[in-house]
Computed example of a mutant assay.
Amino acid sequence: MDELIKFQKYVESHMEKLTDETQVLARFEDFPSKKLEGLRMAAALYAKLDAIATTLQNWKIESPVNQLIDKVENYFNKIKGELDTLDGTKDEELKKFKSQNIHFDFTILVRIKELMVEVSSNCMELALKETREPTAKEHQDNGLKCHSKKRGSGKTLWKAFQFAFRVYTFAGGQDDRADFLTRELAQEIQTDSHEH
């Protein structure tokens, strides 16, 4: 894919010199216009998918976990529909690209799903950490405050759990870490509900 992007940039560096690309290329007999179009489409698609992967890979995991889950979920909602559609049409897209002798690597979709599972796992881990590590000040607070704090953390855990399930459905599974954290989360939610 790196070679494809490099080649596409090389072609574009020459095309941008033309004042009217369509008129100029029309004068060349048998110019591979469809191949040029396919090259541009492949490069644009890969650039978009690569940007999603990079965003997920560089996602900052920081407290408070509620805000973190909201931000991640908003991003997930933004990209999910497009990725689901692409997942369904990738065989058709591959045929189009292959007909122009363009080799497109769709394994980036798998990478995006793996990264989404990783971000979801990081959210679950932070939710568990925030729930299990109350500060010294919270230990000194009266029982009423602790009770409402505990109920709030139960909602946070449930929110993280629901998001993890959506990601699991989207990705078509999860890794061992996500599986372990999901069980931990479920256990914590169950314990929390028995205490109320």
Score class of each variant (00 low, 15 high):
residue 92 E to G: 02
residue 125 E to S: 11
residue 3 E to W: 02
residue 60 K to A: 03
residue 6 K to A: 15
residue 77 N to A: 12
residue 56 L to N: 04
residue 94 L to H: 10
residue 3 E to H: 06
residue 46 Y to D: 06
residue 90 K to T: 10
residue 11 V to I: 11
residue 129 K to Y: 14
residue 22 T to L: 12
residue 65 V to E: 02
residue 43 A to L: 05
residue 184 E to W: 06
residue 173 G to N: 04
residue 67 Q to D: 13
residue 54 T to E: 13
residue 95 K to E: 10
residue 106 F to N: 08
residue 170 F to M: 05
residue 179 D to H: 10
residue 164 A to P: 02
residue 23 Q to D: 15
residue 39 L to Y: 05
residue 81 G to I: 04
residue 52 I to M: 15
residue 117 V to S: 05
residue 170 F to N: 04
residue 94 L to S: 14
residue 153 S to C: 05
residue 72 V to K: 00
residue 182 T to F: 13
residue 169 T to P: 00
residue 32 P to A: 10
residue 163 F to G: 01
residue 53 A to C: 07
residue 113 K to E: 13
residue 27 R to C: 04
residue 35 K to Q: 07
residue 186 A to Y: 11
residue 128 L to N: 03
residue 34 K to F: 10
residue 71 K to I: 10
residue 56 L to G: 06
residue 29 E to R: 12
residue 142 N to W: 14
residue 3 E to S: 08
residue 189 I to Q: 05
residue 175 D to R: 12
residue 148 S to V: 15
residue 73 E to S: 10
residue 44 A to T: 12
residue 75 Y to A: 06
residue 79 I to P: 03
residue 72 V to M: 06
residue 167 V to P: 04
residue 191 T to W: 09
residue 104 F to N: 04
residue 63 S to F: 01
residue 87 D to Y: 10
residue 115 L to E: 15
residue 101 N to A: 11
residue 166 R to G: 03
residue 146 C to V: 15
residue 34 K to H: 14
residue 16 E to L: 10
residue 101 N to G: 04
residue 177 R to A: 02
residue 17 K to L: 13
residue 11 V to C: 09
residue 33 S to V: 06
residue 154 G to N: 03
residue 142 N to S: 13
residue 161 F to R: 08
residue 133 E to Q: 13
residue 119 V to T: 09
residue 78 K to P: 00
residue 112 I to E: 05
residue 24 V to S: 07
residue 132 R to Q: 08
residue 116 M to Y: 01
residue 167 V to K: 00
residue 34 K to S: 14
residue 97 F to R: 04
residue 75 Y to N: 03
residue 10 Y to K: 12
residue 8 Q to E: 15
residue 32 P to D: 12
residue 195 E to M: 04
residue 168 Y to P: 02
residue 162 Q to M: 09
residue 19 T to W: 02
residue 68 L to Q: 00
residue 94 L to Q: 15
residue 153 S to I: 03
residue 93 E to P: 00
residue 168 Y to E: 11
residue 177 R to L: 12
residue 142 N to E: 14
residue 133 E to S: 11
residue 5 I to F: 10
residue 183 R to K: 14
residue 50 D to C: 05
residue 118 E to S: 13
residue 194 H to V: 06
residue 90 K to C: 08
residue 196 H to A: 08
residue 24 V to C: 08
residue 75 Y to W: 03
residue 112 I to P: 03
residue 175 D to L: 08
residue 175 D to F: 05
residue 113 K to C: 04
residue 24 V to D: 05
residue 137 K to S: 11
residue 128 L to I: 05
residue 185 L to H: 05
residue 94 L to V: 11
residue 1 M to Q: 09
residue 10 Y to S: 07
residue 69 I to W: 01
residue 141 D to F: 02
residue 2 D to E: 14
residue 179 D to P: 03
residue 146 C to H: 14
residue 41 M to W: 06
residue 98 K to Y: 09
residue 77 N to K: 12
residue 41 M to G: 04
residue 22 T to W: 08
residue 30 D to R: 04
residue 18 L to R: 01
residue 61 I to N: 09
residue 99 S to L: 08
residue 62 E to F: 00
residue 61 I to Y: 08
residue 120 S to G: 07
residue 146 C to L: 15
residue 143 G to S: 15
residue 139 H to C: 10
residue 53 A to W: 11
residue 22 T to N: 11
residue 13 S to Y: 01
